[in-house]
């Protein structure tokens, strides 16, 4: 398979970026999207050019490192997966693919497709925890949590913190990220005592970081 890639290149923070076109030849349908980029990069390095910087780590959809907007959709055309779980068989041979970074004021670009997502960490630091010291916890079975409640909390807790919600939101809001953490902890009895303070602190932090406001889409 062959593809034409329009990739955003930007030397560093605050510099002017632009799209550069690359040809990806000799791609097999079983290759993952990132392996396809790897092979493009291997070609660039061998020519002494700087490879396209992009982020990835676990390559199994859980660490939340990968962050590409592919043809206008964060993490690409499939639902419920991250970029690293996207395979080239999903694209027709010869397709033109546009690759952009997450775009938001709160996520300044570091280089090419790599953005700085520390804003999300700072939102977490504002209140995304239960203030409990190590040691002295009561037996785990003292707190009973109904199965449904635990499952709903787990749904919210599954957020991988990749920032795709910010990238996808028309307003670059981090509301889904915040809501996931707030719901996860508020649904459990352990998280209840701090729930009000937590919501306020995290929302204030979100505003401080320059995220947009929630558009209430659902």
């Amino acid at each position: 398979m062959k593809f034409t890639l329009n990739i955003w290149r930007q030397k560093g923070p605050g510099e002017k970026g632009r799209f550069v076109t690359y040809e990806a030849g000799d791609v097999s349908s079983g290759m993952s999207f990132l392996e396809m980029l790897d092979s493009v990069n291997q070609g660039l390095i061998a020519k002494g050019e700087e490879p396209v910087a992009f982020e990835q780590d676990c390559r199994e959809g859980i660490c939340g490192s990968c962050s590409l907007v592919i043809n206008g959709i964060p993490h690409g055309p499939d639902r419920g997966i991250t970029t690293c779980q996207l395979y080239m068989r999903r694209f027709p041979d010869g397709a033109v693919i546009r690759i952009e970074p997450w775009r938001a004021r709160a996520f300044p670009i570091i280089k090419d497709l790599v953005v700085d997502r520390r804003a999300l960490d700072r939102v977490m630091q504002a209140g995304g925890y239960i203030s409990v010291n190590t040691g002295g916890a009561v037996d785990g079975n003292v707190l009973l949590v109904s199965k449904d409640q635990a499952e709903t909390a787990m749904d919210a807790a599954s957020c991988i913190g990749c920032g795709a919600c910010v990238a996808a939101c028309k307003n670059a809001s981090a509301m889904l990220f915040v809501a996931a953490k707030v719901s996860h902890l508020a649904l459990l009895p352990q998280g209840k005592p701090e729930r009000t303070r937590r919501v306020r602190a995290m929302l204030e932090a979100m505003d401080r970081e320059g995220f947009g406001s929630c558009g209430n889409h659902r």
Partner: peptide
């Protein structure tokens, strides 16, 4: 202001 640089291509899934 929250998105100073716009996407070149955009496809909305939910909004």
């Amino acid at each position: 202001r929250a998105r100073p640089v716009a996407y070149a291509v955009r496809e909305y899934r939910q909004a």
